[in-house]
């Protein structure tokens, strides 16, 4: 999923820079769900994710003229969303973060242990993906769900390309390790 209509997105940004409101509606249609999910994964709060999604589109509305095409439109849009989100996360108090961590644990999904007992491998993978650190989850989401290249992840997250590769590699190793902890050997690493 998540393939982007690169040229079309760039064209939309040009129209948005010219204050074409229809263009921002179309861009919204293309990106709102993906951005919302990307942000929600980071902030773990639906209301905040909605607000940040809205703010991302507002910023796109205001600064679309600055898009120079050095990166893809999609990468530029995700980078705006991420920067806004990280900025908000950094401002949050420890107390808020503790509450959110508690909420994150209150998940309807099976734990790795329960999924392993049921023999539900797909559920087990989901449960273990949920246990990855946010740093690892972010890169896994960008690569697998948002289908970003190494270069694109590097530009969105603001880390060197080699770090993208090693971070993904270690996220996958950690995933296998979490599965091994509940007795499921993936045969790798």
């Amino acid at each position: 999923m998540a393939s982007s209509n690169g040229n079309g997105d760039s064209e939309l940004l040009k129209r948005i820079a010219a204050k074409d409101r229809v263009a921002v509606e179309v861009l919204y249609g293309r990106y709102n769900v993906r951005l919302y999910r990307f942000i929600l994964r980071l902030v773990r709060n639906e209301a905040m994710a909605e607000e940040l999604t809205n703010e991302t589109f507002m910023e796109i509305w205001q600064v679309a003229g600055k898009f120079e095409g050095r990166s893809s439109a999609s990468t530029w849009i995700f980078a705006i969303a991420r920067n806004k989100t990280i900025s908000v996360i950094r401002k949050r108090s420890d107390e808020e973060l503790d509450d959110e961590r508690a909420m994150a644990i209150e998940d309807d999904a099976d734990t790795p242990e329960v999924a392993a007992q049921k023999g539900d491998k797909a559920a087990l993978i989901r449960a273990c993906l949920n246990r990855l650190s946010s740093e690892h989850r972010e890169v896994v989401d960008l690569v697998y769900y948002h289908e970003k290249s190494i270069k694109e992840v590097s530009e969105i997250v603001g880390i060197p390309e080699n770090t993208v590769k090693t971070r993904m590699f270690h996220a996958r190793k950690k995933l296998s390790g979490l599965m091994a902890e509940v007795g499921v050997d993936r045969g790798w690493p």
């Binding site: 929600l40 999604t53 491998k121 797909a122 993978i125 989901r126 697998y144 769900y145």
Partner: peptide
Amino acid sequence: LVREEIAGSGALAEELGAPRAGAL
């Protein structure tokens, strides 16, 4: 293994839902 991980990642993303009606 990677295909399994992609499927798991996609399923988790779907569970996150979408912005509420009225967001646009």
